[in-house]
Amino acid sequence: MKIGYYPGCSLLGSSREFDESVRALAQALGLELVEVPDWSCCGASSAHVLDHRLALALPARILAQAEAAGLTEILAPCAACYNRLATARDTLEKDPALARDIEAVIGQPVTGNVRIVNVLEVLDRFRDVIPGRIAKPFAHKVACYYGCLLVRPAKVLKFDRPEDPRSMDRLMAAAGAEPREWNFKTECCGAAFSVTRTDLVAKMSGKIVADAVRHGAEAIIVACPMCQSNLDMRRPEINARLGAEHTIPVLFITQALGLAMGIDATKLGLQRHMVPAVMTPAAV
């Protein structure tokens, strides 16, 4: 099985382990990732703040590159990239005049014949395979944290339920974990304010970490690099704000599943986390 692959910028840098774990898992599941040729940045959370045409043109270039390479489906593990690509595709599909304008800007045609999928959607296709591949069950209580970008806007993404989504919980249950009911599955972590308004990120991410811990989670599972870095790298600020010493690790779904499938921790990039992601064996 083959699928287009758009890693996005963070997966080359601050979230390398997401890329590493996606690739490791894909290999283990027999999924071939075909990288979009000469891909560029999607504009993430910055372009749309300054210029709406730029915010469409940047993802449109990626769609055009993928189409030119004959890809019909792109896996975008980064939730921000997934969201920007899917939103741009939807906007251009609904507004042909705008689509012509953007085609002129990027100097390439965009037909919209590429579907954008996130990592949970792709893993769900292996739901019948995964249970048989679990070597070391991820026997921990987990809080599955989806964030905003995977589920909203629901009308565009049409993925899972906009409030209280379930797909990640199902995957983690298949990996042997015990997904906890908790309250902030789709609350915003503060996203792009990580550098500029660290105070707000600490407050918003703090609520999320505290609620996960309150509901007995031993790990927070994510599928978004921004969520991961805010909850992981900003942990000192979070703990300072909460006056707590939360040590709950934040793992990508691909890392947690990889571990359960017996893939080596370093191959999954677990050593790269700020909050140590060494999962002590659960008491049986």
């Binding site: 959370s45 749309h48 703040v49 905003c148 909203r152 806007p153 629901a154 906009p162 409030e163 789709t186 915003c188 503060g190 996203a191 792009a192 304010f193």
Partner: peptide, 9 residues
Amino acid sequence: CLGCETCST
């Protein structure tokens, strides 16, 4: 505004 889309949803 972080564009989290909770409002629109």
